[in-house]
Write a protein that binds this DNA or RNA. Structure first.
Lengths: 199, 199
DNA sequence: TAGGATTGACTGGCTAGCCAATCAAGATGG
DNA sequence: CCATCTTGATTGGCTAGCCAGTCAATCCTA
């Protein structure tokens, strides 16, 4: 088989893992689930990935890369980019997206017990946080945001607040949480940041 | 054994569950772990609780009641109470507290799949959120906070931000996260809320 | 001695990983 | 041009381990 087969197969396994995760959640995810979605045998998964952990590490990488690309693709002036970033936490494209974030939450909860999971999340956190801080930075440079704003500090609150809102919304089954926090965040944080807001 | 024995035994089992959770985390928690901490046999646990789930539901109740009591015990003027509440997310009393929150995060991640877990978390969220909103409310009444503040909206951001900061700190192994978000929250939110801050 | 408390062995189900056998397809060579 | 060999892909069954839950027997204690 040609050189393409290798990566095509891995891509297919990643997609199968995605579907299996959405259907079963992380805790109930078995190699058999993934194999069923893959349409091939469980043994074959072990042929391509030494262990379940290897497969999952690869999957996290696959998933986080997607998120990072999505964020990097946001365009426009800094204040609009920031708003669009926040909005990413609110839009819930139906059940699939919800199921994914549910599984991802379980997976993140395992990170403290798994160095490789944790390192990937930490790496991704640094990238996303820097991206948000850059938006703020650029806003200060272009004169949209007040000059006495600390980009990293602001990036942290925004991230923590929206991520926390998503988590709380998911765990208590209240899907209004992210939107409510977004509104409050805009009212009590972002609006005060704009140049022209009273100091 | 007298009527006391029943609840004393249950209390002992709750404490054993607490220790077992801290030691093993939620995902690796077995009835045997709990029994070992309990100092009695696994069969006895099933004598007192029909199933592992029953036991865990009771434990969540036990734990959340503790949190709620702790928050209710905060005293002083509203702005100080709010600051003290936020500080609760920052202070990490050594490894035990960290291990507890680690396990609790895993447990919360299971709530979407377990109605009884979810309902308890939702109930607790309502109580805690109301408590925070009350602080803001009282601050408005006593003239410490600006009158155009929405108590519930503010409670949600504060909760989401600090809870999110804890989660992100735990999952990526960065224990500076909660303190950083607290500082940013105070700078960009609370300070602007005080009467006397420019509007 | 009666009844609750407690034990420890046992079962049944589930899962990751392993392995030997099979298959498909291309390379080799006479 | 066919037979053989090689190699990677794929299967399905097997195993060992783990865990929740059960149960009959035993131990207290009032």
């Amino acid at each position: 088989m040609g050189g393409e087969g290798q990566s095509e197969t891995r891509e297919a396994i990643m997609e199968a893992t995605y579907r299996a995760l959405c259907d079963h959640g992380y805790a109930s995810l078995t190699m058999q689930n993934i194999a069923d979605e893959f349409g091939k045998s469980k043994g074959l998964l072990h042929y391509h990935f030494d262990s379940k952990e290897e497969l999952l590490v690869a999957f996290i990488d696959y998933l986080l890369a997607g998120f990072e690309d999505d964020i990097a693709s946001i365009e426009g002036p800094p204040d609009e980019r920031l708003a669009a970033f926040i909005e990413r936490f609110v839009v819930a494209n139906g059940d699939e997206r919800r199921a994914l974030h549910l599984a991802l939450l379980e997976l993140r909860a395992q990170a403290p017990f798994n160095d490789r999971f944790r390192d990937q999340l930490a790496r991704s956190d640094a990238i996303v946080r820097a991206a948000v801080a850059d938006m703020v930075d650029e806003g200060i440079t272009t004169g949209v945001f007040r000059a006495d704003t600390d980009p990293d500090a602001l990036a942290r609150v925004v991230l923590a607040a929206m991520d926390g809102a998503r988590m709380r919304g998911l765990t208590i089954g209240d899907d209004t949480y992210p939107a409510a926090v977004r509104d409050a965040l805009i009212t009590y944080v972002l609006d005060d940041l704009l140049v022209g807001a009273a100091e």
